[in-house]
């Protein structure tokens, strides 16, 4: 084949492209990443691909076991619950609630946290020290306790739960951004652009953010697995999504009374939570691994 380029150009991949190159190496991480994409697809397409609506009752098919059991029915692949609602449809709709909303929560708190974090990295002295201690206090209060308190102020409900979790996650992002920005600010290339006369905001935008974005993404995956678990835990405790909503934690709480008769109503939502958290954690793990590899080179 003829070579298009005669001169071998030296290519400098951006940090994100480098990250991707290192990220896709271990097969386990790629499996996790595919599961992650699969969950996103489920969350987006939930309304189109589900066979039934999440609240549709089939009164002649109450508590039907999954299709592989002897009493199962193939038109209800994963069985039904105590009100005859199709488990498969509810689980898929639940993906867009528990998993999909956790992504939105993380993006929102990432945006706020990064802004506060980079502003605080530019401050020094007593203001910075106060903020640091304040963050330490917030970070050492258990996240669930904080979320519960915010829910107590706002009142129960899915939307209020989301606000609570966003607020709980913000301090983590502030902390990570602040440390990462401070670390980069001490490096020589920042000094170089500072000598060129760049303002702090310009340095942040063009020099620092491209270099810390992978740290933020890695923190975001950690935050997301925490967000999934927190949304589900609040749903389970009856403080989050109201009962008819197919949120995984609320589904699990709904199934507890029927545990002995219909164990699948408890197993399946739990497995769904476990699966999505593992997929998220694998992506995060791959990210951190890729970062480490890049640092070593």
């Amino acid at each position: 084949m003829a070579r298009d380029k005669i001169y071998l150009e030296e290519e400098f991949p951006t940090p994100l492209v480098q990250l991707w190159h290192n990220f896709k190496q271990p097969p386990v991480v790629m499996i996790g990443f595919c599961c992650f994409l699969f969950l996103i697809a489920l969350a987006v397409l939930a309304n189109i691909i589900t066979p039934y609506s999440s609240v549709e009752n089939h009164l002649d098919h109450l508590l039907l076991p999954p299709a592989w059991s002897d009493d199962g029915d193939v038109s209800f692949l994963l069985g039904t619950d105590n009100l005859g609602r199709d488990m498969l449809s509810r689980l898929i709709h639940g993906t867009s609630l528990t998993f999909g909303l956790s992504i939105i929560v993380v993006i929102a708190s990432l945006a706020v946290g990064v802004v506060i974090g980079s502003l605080s990295a530019l401050t020094t002295g007593i203001k910075s020290s106060f903020l640091n201690h304040f963050l330490d206090v917030i970070l050492s209060i258990p996240s669930l306790l904080l979320a519960i308190i915010i829910v107590a102020i706002l009142g129960p409900g899915l939307e209020n739960t989301l606000w609570a979790i966003i607020m709980v996650l913000i301090p983590q992002f502030v902390h990570v951004t602040r440390n990462a920005v401070k670390e980069e600010f001490a490096k020589d290339y920042v000094l170089a652009s500072r000598l060129d006369g760049a303002s702090s905001v310009r340095i942040l935008r063009y020099s620092i953010f491209p270099n810390i974005i992978e740290k933020l993404i890695s923190q975001a995956t950690l935050a997301q697995s925490a967000a999934i678990l927190d949304i589900a835990a609040l749903g389970f405790l009856g403080l989050g999504a109201p009962i008819p909503m197919p949120e995984w934690g609320a589904m699990l709480a709904n199934g507890i009374e029927l545990f002995y008769i219909a164990p699948w109503t408890v197993y399946l939502p739990g497995l769904a939570i476990l699966f999505s958290v593992i997929a998220t954690n694998l992506v995060g793990e791959g990210m951190r691994h890729a970062l480490k590899v890049r640092k070593e080179n």
Binding site: L252, F259, V266, G270, I273, L274, V277, N281
Partner: peptide, 12 residues
């Protein structure tokens, strides 16, 4: 698996 498992599910 250990730190991905939801604690309420594990308890049940």
């Amino acid at each position: 698996i250990g730190y991905s498992i939801p604690v309420f599910w594990l308890g049940i």
